[in-house]
């Protein structure tokens, strides 16, 4: 922000936010098209060319739906929670380095700030279930709370190895450290751990147990309808877009690429990972809950610690 006139900074902020939210909206369209393609169906193709106006129609529909708030809910919490997830996503947008000169904020502790924001956005899922006061929602929340805490650790461990490699906690410095070789190649173990943990963090299949519809109806958002439900829905897809952008930042060298560097490389890599999220959801079955927890504590965390140790040793002697 330093040195820029306030107006240009504001314009950048609004522009980036618009792009990210549009991407999140169109991720819902992509989800349905990709799901249809994988299942040998056609998917939404009537609203506009290739069904491209479908997300707009969906939002309009949700706007005009009747909002039903069940009597036993906690009115204050029930009202607040759908917003928390979007606040988290929007706050994270400010930190992502899209290109060399297209970063809104580059604090010296950017990586940690991101982890903090991701920890705080977990509250939306946890509180939604508690506010609803029904058993399905409560079980969804219980699962979400345990899952978010468990998978934050391997995620932080994977990022710690990246920070060790880059020698900085600033996201711009981390991308710059990858100008020759992305960390996905030099840190393959951390890359895989992060990729797995991110699926749990975003509540996406195969780790979408907080909203497992076959067991919990809708999980934490069972008692939400109309636009409040839409906030959760949009928040999930925005989270997917941001998570893909972060994978690109941490492990794939952000805006660097073969040929001319620039924001287009960032966009291509991010969109690939958004597709990857959809691809995994429609090809992998959901895991069982005990498998999910055991995998985090007995496989990912020891592996992450070992990876940090080896990275540190290589840094000292290499």
């Amino acid at each position: 922000m330093s040195g820029q006139p306030l107006l240009i900074f504001a314009a950048k902020a609004v522009g980036i936010l618009a792009v990210v939210l549009t991407a999140a909206t169109y991720a819902t369209w992509a989800e349905r098209r990709v799901a249809a393609w994988i299942q040998d169906r056609i998917g939404p193709n009537k609203t506009g060319p290739f069904g491209l106006l479908q997300p707009i129609a969906d939002v309009l529909k949700l706007f005009f739906k009747e909002e039903i708030v069940p009597a036993p809910v906690d009115p204050v919490l029930h009202f607040i929670t759908p917003g928390i997830i979007m606040v988290g996503v929007i706050a994270a947008t400010a930190l992502i380095p899209f290109a060399e000169n297209l970063t809104l904020a580059d604090p010296p502790v950017g990586v940690l700030l991101l982890l903090g924001i991701s920890a705080l956005s977990g509250y939306s899922v946890i509180l939604a279930g508690m506010a609803s006061r029904t058993k399905y929602s409560l079980f969804g929340s219980l699962r979400a709370a345990a899952q978010v805490i468990s998978y934050e650790i391997p995620m932080a461990l994977a990022i710690a190895s990246v920070v060790l490699m880059a020698g900085s906690l600033s996201l711009v410095d981390i991308v710059k450290a990858q100008s020759h070789l992305p960390f996905a190649i030099t840190q393959p173990v951390a890359f895989i751990i992060y990729l797995i943990a991110v699926f749990a963090e975003t509540n996406r299949a195969p780790f979408d147990l907080p909203e497992a519809e076959s067991e919990l109806v809708g999980g934490y958002h069972t008692e939400y309808s109309s636009m409040r439900f839409a906030w959760f829905f949009a928040g999930e897809y925005a989270h997917v877009v941001i998570a893909s952008a972060l994978i690109t930042t941490f492990f794939l060298g952000g805006w660097y690429g073969p040929g001319p560097d620039g924001v287009w490389w960032f966009a291509i890599k991010t969109l690939f990972f958004v597709y990857f999220f959809l691809w995994v959801r429609w090809t992998y079955p959901r895991t069982r809950y005990d498998q999910l927890m055991k995998f985090a504590w007995k496989v990912l965390i020891p592996l992450g610690l070992l990876n940090i140790l080896i990275t540190a040793l290589i840094k000292i002697w290499g």
Binding site: P108, V109, G116, A119, G122, I126, A145, E152
Partner: peptide, 27 residues
């Protein structure tokens, strides 16, 4: 800034989640 962010990650992000977790189970 480091202390501030660690405060968010550890206390706000983990410890209060644990409190909520316990409250849920006690219910």
């Amino acid at each position: 800034p480091f202390l501030g962010v660690i405060q968010i990650i550890v206390y706000s992000g983990a410890i209060v989640v644990f409190f909520l977790f316990v409250i849920m189970i006690l219910n």
